[in-house]
Design a protein around this nucleic acid. Structure first.
Length: 301
DNA sequence: AACCGTCACAACCGCATGCGA
DNA sequence: CTCGCATGCGGTTGTGACGGT
């Protein structure tokens, strides 16, 4: 299901992301924001191209991603939007909070398309049968439709042509947080070999621990706690205690309700000044707007 | 047990677009 | 207007999992 890691000519890694890489990226973006994808891997200690980092973050690591099976409502929305917009996956994804364009695209190509085609065939057969019956009754000599049927919907779907149908995407109450990796068992012994001290200490000892409600410090449990639904722990809070200058310190207390939604004080002190927009350089605190934070690096004062 | 075909999906690639100099 | 850079987008590929023979 996943690609075997490999290296390309320039020495940058390609292929499947390892849990270590994921943690480095999450730790970096969470702390510093994605101020420049091209430069980011260098500062985050990742032997990846910026494009790969961005893709990994956008499609897999970013907060509020909903993972798991698509609901019938979501599938219906995909089909309806596909019919309305064509294969503009990003636009379709915008209608489904927590779903990525890549995920929707994959789901369409692997599941929905076939289902729709089957449905189309079934509809054609039914129509042909109906036509045949009508023909036999009327005694006429009609010709099967050579153009076929272009509108295809699942047999179970009731899709209206009215694009203003008020379908409301399912709220992501099931899980507001993405699981960092499905390969959790391999995260037990993480060794960071880079020059980025904050990663060694911050990621290993604090980052996940901060999110852990059980007090269990095993990596597996830490990651599990990341995947918790806010509803599971909204009544509890996490007291942040670390010595690593975590952005979480700015708030002192973080709950699963606000962990990803609260703006934070991004530390861009290590970012070359020439790469910062003036407002960032001039301001003391850099608070990425939540809406843009995980996709764009727009800092505001 | 070994082989093979299919499936699911993460990740890559190339082009398009936006934006600032 | 043009150029270069960063990012976004959609198509495609590669690979492990899984089921059937």
């Amino acid at each position: 299901m996943v690609r075997t890691p490999s290296c390309d000519k320039s020495g940058l890694r390609k292929g499947t992301w390892t849990p270590e890489e994921d943690m480095k990226l999450v730790a970096y973006v969470t702390r510093y924001g994605c101020w420049n994808w091209r430069q980011l891997p260098k500062f985050a200690g990742l032997a990846r191209c910026g494009k790969s980092c961005r893709l990994r973050w956008m499609n897999y690591l970013r907060p509020n991603l909903k993972r798991g099976n698509f609901t019938p409502q979501e599938e219906e929305c995909i089909i309806r939007m596909l019919k309305k917009l064509g294969n503009r996956w990003s636009a379709i994804a915008a209608e489904l909070p927590g779903r990525t364009d890549n995920e929707i695209k994959n789901h369409w190509h692997t599941t929905l398309k076939k289902r729709c085609q089957q449905s189309t065939v079934t509809n054609e057969e039914a129509r042909a049968s109906k036509s045949k019956n009508k023909e036999s009754r009327a005694g006429t000599n009609s010709v099967p439709n050579k153009n076929g049927v272009t509108v295809s919907v699942p047999a179970t779907s009731q899709i209206s042509d009215n694009s203003s149908d008020s379908f409301s995407p399912v709220s992501s109450s099931s899980s507001e947080f993405s699981s960092i990796t499905s390969d959790r068992s391999s995260m037990g012994n993480l060794v960071f070999e880079d020059d980025f001290g904050f990663l060694d200490s911050y990621v290993n000892e604090s980052f996940w621990k901060e999110l852990n409600l059980d007090g269990d410090t095993s990596c597996t449990e830490m990651v599990d706690s990341c995947a918790l639904s806010p509803n599971q722990s909204s009544s509890e809070s996490v007291v942040v205690e670390n010595d690593f200058g975590s952005f979480l310190d700015a708030y002192g207390e973080v709950t699963f309700d606000n962990f990803w939604s609260e703006p934070y004080v991004a530390d861009v002190s290590h970012v070359p000044s020439e790469l910062l927009v003036p407002s960032v350089v001039e301001s003391e605190y850099f608070t990425p707007m939540y809406d843009d934070l995980w996709g764009q690096s727009h800092f505001v004062q």
